[in-house]
């Protein structure tokens, strides 16, 4: 009994230690950096100030926020439109091996470095790349067009990179639907279309919201995609943070943006929690 107690304490202490090291301390540093004014002469003499947050209200930054939100919303919508049917096909498939192939098919790219995958997207989308060659070859286009270095290319890259994050939660929420519900809908006279829209779709709502939420958040932070695929035309929140810190050396502003971003993520998580409560408790 006593040994058990000690073991319990060690496990809890270990978990606690790593949470402090990896989450609490970095976030506290972030918060401190965002709330202080940097003084190059005396780096350790921190002075409290809200100046960093004040600067975030500049119209220039607003353009970046709006652009980021627009791109992340488009990405999430496209991921949903493409990902939901895919998840539904996996859910409906009875043969286990096909199910596994379909699942591995979306997980495998996820395990490869996304930087490498982004470079391969460049090869596909560039002016004399595969996509243009195919479109011209089939006579759909007269001559190659510039797809790369545009907003569409950024969204394409994001959808490609993030779609597993939509498919997995949607698939999991579909799998949680008790087959008896589908059968009882059938029993009560519903046809496939009605079963889908009245039973399956509403019951997979939690998967849809989780998927959209995760995809949107991840897309906000993916600065390298807009760097590589969008040229420097598409500045997103992620780019802003990176540029402020790495290029401008403005740790304060970078930290302030991150903090705001962080607060939104927390709010989102809380909303998600509510969502799960309604559906599964």
């Amino acid at each position: 009994m006593k040994n058990n107690d000690i073991f319990k304490k060690i496990v809890i202490a270990n978990t606690f230690f790593w949470i402090v090291i990896t989450a609490v301390i970095p976030n506290l540093l972030l918060l401190i950096a965002s709330l202080t004014q940097q003084q190059y002469e005396q780096p350790l003499n921190l002075r409290f100030s809200l100046e960093n947050f004040h600067q975030l209200f500049s119209p220039l930054y607003f353009k970046v926020y709006l652009n980021s939100i627009k791109i992340s919303v488009f990405t999430a919508i496209i991921c949903l439109i493409v990902g939901y049917p895919y998840a539904y096909i996996i859910y409906k498939e009875d043969r286990v091996y096909i199910k596994n192939i379909l699942l591995i098919g979306i997980l495998m790219p996820f395990w490869t470095s996304s930087l490498i995958r982004t470079y391969s997207i460049i090869f596909i989308l560039q002016f004399n790349g595969i996509l243009n060659k195919i479109l011209v070859g089939f006579g759909i286009l007269q001559r190659p067009v510039n797809i790369l270095y545009s907003e569409s290319a950024v969204i394409f890259g994001m959808v490609y990179t993030l779609i597993p994050l939509m498919i997995i939660p949607v698939y999991l929420s579909l799998r949680r639907i008790n087959n008896d519900l589908v059968e009882s809908a059938k029993d009560l006279g519903a046809h496939s279309f009605q079963i889908f829209f009245r039973v399956i779709l509403p019951l997979s709502k939690s998967g849809i919201t989780s998927g959209c939420f995760i995809v949107m958040l991840s897309s906000l932070g993916m600065f390298y995609l807009s760097d590589l695929l969008g040229g420097s035309k598409n500045i997103l929140i992620g780019n802003l943070i990176k540029d402020q810190i790495l290029l401008g050396g403005n740790y304060g502003i970078g930290a302030a943006i991150s903090t705001i971003f962080y607060i939104f993520v927390l709010l989102g998580v809380l909303i998600q929690k509510e969502n799960y409560k309604i559906n599964f408790d």
């Binding site: 059968e183 059938k186 029993d187 009560l188 006279g189 519903a190 046809h191």
Partner: peptide, 15 residues
Amino acid sequence: SPSNRKVNTVFQNYA
């Protein structure tokens, strides 16, 4: 099909 049969079921776990 079940949807067209004049038969209805009360499922074990109510569903």
